[in-house]
Design a protein around this nucleic acid. Structure first.
Lengths: 218, 218
DNA sequence: ATTACTAATATCCGAGTAT
DNA sequence: TATACTCGGATATTAGTAA
């Protein structure tokens, strides 16, 4: 299907051709698209040829209607854009649920962090983290996260022990609100740690090896 | 903006260019779009020229990212499709509020009709109709309505007077539920009569001459 | 491997015009 | 008025290469 025909078909749809035979003269179409009457006429013939529109040709004017084939074509274009903006507005990382070493739990439960979570994320995390191991293509998205700003979590000292700074991203797993806690320590980590006010393994019935999608709002 | 560039830009978005610099070679792009490597290279240069993408050119490969301008462009395309499918799934008729002759009120308040409205539309109409005059391109949509089935309203007799059958369409005006009452009498009428449980002129602060959109679910 | 130039070719567009 | 044909100039695409 020729590229220039897509926009003509879209235009016909926008002026009413999705429903019913709509009066569309080649002159009108030409003016609206900024092309010549001759070219508009040609485009209409091409669309007819491809069976993307049908037409009732009267003495004075023609009536055009988009066919099911044409509408399907437009729907597939539409779904491309839906996918694209799902990509643009959210970042979805797929990974596998794994068991950590309890390290996450140790950090998350530190008062110095906990207070910041409540303050900045507006929820009190369950005292543990869900570890998700990322692999393959999604590793690129992980490195993308490393470069995004997110919600900064400050480092602090407690009883002479130093706790490093990090950052968080609000996200959801299967619609359940949560956040990625990304410590600044390493850039080569292939595991992300999720905190949530829920115990996610119970709430979402997750066990090691399950594949989950983490969707981050940008 | 050239037509063929739109689909190239969309494609770049779909393979990751919405977020970040993504490796896209002219060869890869060419194969995916079914054009020659040379043309793909040219398209990339044109997109750069129009500032719809930016690029980091490495020794072995280039990384491409869609600019804000490019993203805005794609968003406007997206909104065209949203409008189009809003049109496909709903029928929106625009018209001007006018004063009737009180005829609508006379009919609507007949018990023979009133009972059917409550039974079939699930609301008890306010005792009057809102008249909306249709003109221009929207007249075609009106004739479309004449051909749709809708919710049938039976005719009846009362005190020797005959009341004709008609049909209704559930719709909304600015989100307020209402229905179009279409009497079967004439096909050349340019006014539609709206019934609603509310007195719409008050509820929506309408006066004669105001333009309103009536949205019918198909 | 890349990207992208030049030159040849294919396609598109619109003025003039027929119907 | 319409739609739509022909045909020459404009534009787009690609093959052959260079860098």
């Amino acid at each position: 299907m020729k590229n220039s025909l897509i926009s003509v078909l879209k235009h016909i749809g926008l002026v009413g051709g999705v429903h019913d035979f709509t009066p569309i003269s080649s002159r009108m179409l030409a003016d609206e698209l900024g092309i010549s009457q001759q070219s508009a006429s040609k485009k209409i013939l091409e669309l007819l040829e491809d069976e993307l529109i049908t037409r009732r040709l009267g003495a004075r004017r023609q009536f055009i209607k988009i066919t099911d084939k044409g509408l399907n074509f437009l729907r597939s274009e539409y779904s491309d854009y839906q996918r694209l903006f799902e990509l643009a507005d959210y970042l979805t990382i797929r990974g596998v649920v794994t068991s950590g070493l309890g390290e996450g739990k140790y950090y998350v439960t530190q008062k110095g962090y906990m207070d910041q979570f409540m303050d900045k994320l507006w929820f009190k995390p369950y005292e543990g983290t869900l570890n998700i191991k990322i692999s393959g293509r999604d590793l690129n998205k992980l490195s993308l996260i490393k470069n995004l700003d997110g919600i900064p979590i400050d480092g602090f000292e407690d009883h002479g022990r130093t706790f490093g700074k990090g950052k968080c991203f609000l996200c959801d797993i299967q619609g359940v609100e949560c956040a990625i806690m990304d410590p600044n320590r390493t850039h080569y980590e292939k595991v992300i740690e999720i905190i949530s006010k829920h115990y996610l393994r119970n709430k979402l019935k997750l066990k090691d090896g399950d594949v989950v999608e983490v969707r981050i709002a940008l």
